[in-house]
């Protein structure tokens, strides 16, 4: 298993390099001008100087290698030096063109909002999905199953930008229960402000959780159904085990194997896939940062963010495969 993981990690390196190159070339080919948003009164020669100062005059391979050096060498070294107090830690970092501040700082600044809202919704989604999937499969074709599969089909089909807008209309326009905009400057200091935080998180979390739960409960149900008719279940019942033990221990453990990998595969979407929900509820997380920097032609930020998303996807694919190998003794990679 260790061998396999190391091999996969080594294989991931060329993939990541290819992805970073694709993203870089794509951004470079595009006819976008980072100075387009600056005032029109700037004379053309000054504009050209601004472009030069952003590094746009260099040939493409120099800019690509420079980005690689700044991101893969300078950033980690800076962090290490700051942690251990070795040196000043002020090597040149990847700078955003829009804000002139390091991109990694921007990302760190926005990470908590994304993690809180989207991460929480994933946890809630999983916690809802598992029991629904289990009961639906155990009582197949019962009214609970019919309703459960219908709701999960709806949650799976209705896009989050519609459910999001719908809950805003119902709960904040008509009923006025929750604020429609997520206030990210809000700080939790006492009980009152904590309650406010909970109230403003309910809607985005609920919308995303419905979407996640719909997908996971379908997997859970299908996986339970596969296992419920197996011979070992009949054996367990014939031994006289209690029904609870049979279902919750024998069947559930085996059915969770594929579901756990599906859950692991969904984790990167927490960071990248919630762009729309963040936009609906005006959460200024990573997705919103991406949208802003795309609109402003801020290539270093877009490049770095998309690359980080790609890293997450590859890492969690690996995690899913390794988990599958650990959980299921029939799978042997070596």
């Amino acid at each position: 298993m260790l061998n396999y993981s190391i091999r996969r990690l080594l294989l991931a390196i060329p993939t990541l390099i290819a992805i970073s190159l694709i993203i870089f070339l794509l951004l470079d080919l595009a006819p976008s001008d980072p100075t387009a948003n600056l005032p029109l009164t700037i004379p053309p020669e000054v504009r050209e100087k601004i472009r030069q100062s952003l590094g746009l005059g260099d040939p493409i391979y120099i800019r690509y290698l420079l980005w690689c050096k700044q991101f893969f060498v300078n950033e980690p070294l800076n962090i290490l030096e700051q942690w251990f107090g070795w040196g000043s830690g002020d090597r040149l970092r990847v700078l955003s063109w829009q804000t002139r501040s390091p991109v990694v700082d921007l990302i760190v600044e926005r990470m908590p909002q994304t993690l809180w809202v989207v991460g929480m919704s994933y946890v809630v989604g999983v916690l809802i999905a598992l029991p629904i999937g289990i009961i639906s499969a155990y009582r197949q074709y019962s009214w609970f199953d019919q309703i459960g599969t219908f709701v999960s089909m709806v949650g799976f089909s209705v896009p989050t930008f519609f459910t999001g807008v719908l809950v805003i209309v119902i709960f904040s326009v008509w009923l006025g229960w929750f604020p429609s905009i997520y206030d990210t400057t809000h700080q939790v200091t006492d009980w009152e402000s904590f309650l406010f935080q909970v109230r403003q998180m309910i809607m985005p979390v609920a919308v995303l959780a419905l979407f996640n739960a719909a997908q996971i409960s379908r997997f859970m149900r299908a996986s339970m159904l596969d296992n419920l008719n197996q011979d070992y279940v009949r054996t367990a019942r014939a031994k006289g085990l209690r029904e609870r033990t049979v279902v919750m221990i024998h069947v559930l453990r085996n059915s969770l194997i594929p579901v756990v990998t599906v859950i692991a595969l969904g984790v990167p979407q927490i960071f990248g896939g919630a762009i729309i929900t963040e936009q609906v509820f005006k959460v200024n997380g990573l997705g919103q940062l991406l949208i802003i920097s795309i609109q402003g032609g801020d290539l270093p930020t877009v490049q770095t963010l998309t690359f980080i998303f790609a890293v997450l996807i590859i890492v969690f694919n690996l995690v899913a495969d390794v988990l599958y190998g650990i959980l299921d003794p029939r799978i042997r990679y070596d």
């Binding site: 080919l29 595009a30 976008s32 990248g272 998309t306």
Partner: peptide, 16 residues
């Protein structure tokens, strides 16, 4: 499959 699709779609459309 490893490419982050929605961000990439946005980038492509914005740029071209």
């Amino acid at each position: 499959l490893a490419l982050p699709l929605l961000p990439l779609l946005l980038v492509i459309i914005m740029l071209f």
